[in-house]
């Protein structure tokens, strides 16, 4: 049984269907890349998986637990297991980097602040940001913000990590750093789904590549030859 089994998801905005009967099966610890032209529904699918996008129909089984995507309780159930890193990071600029990391664990999970701060400082050290704990995110570079956003997402101890364009704001050296970090996380059992336009990192990183077109899954490539699936290869070659 796959770790994530999404079936029949349809998302409608006014009369336009942004996602049509989309399904996705992902194993635990897999890295999945969603690719496709602009407006194909990649980001909408990511937002659906974190409960930001109301769906018309669809069901999800996450680690054996069935979630009715149309139920009012679905967003909270999804966010208890998943975390997202937005393209623009969504860091809270009015609080320190450290507080960005400790806010959810202390307020939502009610964990003791001292314990959470220790864990957050450890996480920042691991990401080479130990000296940035007390400053505001607005003073960080794009790459640093990206890592803080990932660190904040990880503080909620998710087992599904969603990333919207994780490498778009980074220079090539930082791309390989973030890629290595995502690989480490996947090796530790975290399932990762990313939307990406960076075809090199998609090819290098993905266990599964999903090509979306016009709100539908056009092709899925899996395993070592994921990028060799003809439609996917054609799209990737055209967008390198």
């Amino acid at each position: 049984m796959p770790y994530l089994d999404l079936r029949g998801v349809t998302v409608r905005q006014d009369t336009h269907e942004i996602l049509r009967d989309v399904g996705l099966q992902v194993g635990r610890g897999e890295i999945v890349s969603l690719i496709g032209p602009s407006g194909s529904g990649k980001s909408t699918l990511l937002r659906t998986l974190i409960g930001l996008q109301p769906v018309v129909s669809g069901s999800l089984t996450l680690d054996g637990v069935a979630i009715d995507m149309t139920a009012a309780s679905a967003p909270r159930a999804l966010r208890a297991r998943a975390a997202i890193v937005f393209q623009q990071f969504g860091l809270f600029d009015h609080m320190s980097v450290l507080r960005n990391l400790t806010l959810a664990p202390t307020v939502v999970a009610g964990r003791p602040r001292a314990e959470v701060e220790e864990a957050a400082r450890h996480r920042l050290r691991m990401l080479g940001l130990a000296d940035k704990a007390e400053i505001r995110p607005s003073r960080l570079s794009g790459g640093q913000k990206q890592r803080v956003a990932i660190a904040r997402a990880l503080m909620t101890q998710p087992d599904l990590l969603l990333l919207d364009e994780p490498t778009s704001a980074l220079d090539p050296r930082l791309v390989s750093e973030v890629t290595a970090l995502l690989r480490d996380l996947a090796r530790a059992g975290m399932t990762i789904i990313q939307v990406s336009h960076g075809m090199e990192s998609v090819a290098a990183l993905s266990d599964r590549i999903v090509l979306l077109e016009d709100g539908r899954v056009r092709a899925v490539g899996a395993g070592a030859r994921a990028a060799a699936e003809p439609s996917i290869a054609a799209f990737m070659n055209a967008h390198r």
Partner: peptide, 25 residues
Amino acid sequence: ADQIEAAVTLNLPLLARWRHVIVPQ
């Protein structure tokens, strides 16, 4: 809006979103 969405996805309850994210900004 991305600040509010970030708070939502962190599962912050409504009052906590107002207290920690919306009102201070």
